[in-house]
Nucleic acid binder design. Structure first.
Lengths: 213, 213
DNA sequence: CAAATTTTTGACCGATTGGACAAACGTTAG
DNA sequence: CTAACGTTTGTCCAATCGGTCAAAAATTTG
């Protein structure tokens, strides 16, 4: 994907490519734990192992780093939803989607928190994207789900809120990780918590809480 | 609840009580939308309609405002979970809990976002509370839920993750409100979205997605 | 009333912030 | 070697930050 903010792809040397990656990696770490305003260029520069003016040689403004980060994030973030399609068994498809989202929460918690930070503060930088690209994608998948309901493959319910609930429950394990670990305690809060969560979510979304029989 | 940070309850004049409330109300608005570091004393002072030194006459440090806000928040925030008890039908109890939490997301979105901001950034100020008071409460309620499972009143599953999923799905409508409204669009994103969410969540938690029959 | 106390404010301070800039350094091409 | 170009850094700046302070204004008390 080309940089949306520049008309033509800027030519970059090998060093520029590498250093920009280094900065973005460091900035992801810093932004995701301190928020945009809570992070300083010095922090990012130090995490990237370079001086502040050197960092500003690769990204002219603090906002440019954040913007680049958000653009990359959104592409990978919505990939699981894009994969949800009509072929295959509906319940299996949804199960896979839930599993993929939970894996992303486990493997990319910093990206999840970066996104959560942005939304929490009113999404000032990505509002058009939410109402545009994201809404279009969700509407499209909601229609797929509606088709499954009409065909009697899954229970009739609100597809949009279904998608919200999948987002909420899976991202919770990234965004609220400290709380989850604190409540589960040292015994159950270890690495196994994601498998426990996967089992629980599968049961919740498929069967609910009503006892069988 | 008495102020945990001061040994004895400080005596306050009528003006002090009123102005402190005014400041806390303004600070809730500012902190919940900008985070702690993203908020300035000037912003809060302006929102409260007073000068910065005047504000600092009532709260000596920025952190004191945030601390007072968090203490109040936590008490009311956990009230719905405290109400969950053994008397009454289990499924009805859980339904009520979900409804109460969703109502809190609707009526106190700023408190929800303030809390989310704190957790997102690693809960630096309330970590002991999470591992202490909160964990104790959740463990206790998890045992209640376990009892229901043993009695065959609800399906067997992980009570802790059940509670997490209720938190996640309900608070999502406060914390990710902009995204929810953007995706639902002007038609369905209006005031009715909370009733739609309530209907959906009830169905999800009780019956899941598997088609009937 | 007057004295004592509480409340409010303008001016100010040191620290931190995002960012500019020119000079120094390193690398590559002719 | 040298000129050109890409990279790095020390220094600096204006704005903003949290917070202080003394004095003025308002209020309460006797």
């Amino acid at each position: 994907m080309t940089d949306a903010t520049e008309g033509s792809a800027p030519r970059r040397t090998r060093i520029q490519q590498e250093k920009r990656e280094l900065i973005l990696e460091a900035a992801l770490e810093v932004f995701s734990t301190n928020g945009f305003r809570g992070s300083t260029i010095d922090q990012i520069a130090e995490a990237a192992g370079m001086s502040k003016p050197n960092l500003l040689y690769y990204f002219r403004r603090k906002e440019d780093i954040h913007e680049t980060l958000m653009e990359r994030l959104l592409a990978t973030w919505l990939a699981p939803l894009r994969e949800l399609d009509d072929i295959g068994d509906p319940l299996t498809e949804l199960r896979s989607y839930i599993r993929r989202k939970l894996e992303m929460a486990r493997d990319f918690p910093r990206e999840s928190r970066l996104f959560a930070n942005e939304i929490l503060q009113g999404a000032p930088r990505i509002m058009p994207l939410l109402a545009g690209e994201l809404k279009t994608l969700v509407d499209e998948k909601a229609n797929v789900i509606k088709g499954w309901m009409r065909a009697g493959k899954i229970a009739r319910t609100d597809p949009w809120h279904l998608i919200f609930s999948i987002w909420a429950t899976t991202q919770h394990y990234a965004d609220f990780d400290v709380q989850v670990r604190a409540v589960l305690g040292p015994d159950r809060g270890g690495d196994g918590r994601f498998e426990d969560a996967a089992r629980f979510l599968e049961q919740l979304f498929i069967d609910g809480l009503k006892p069988k029989g």
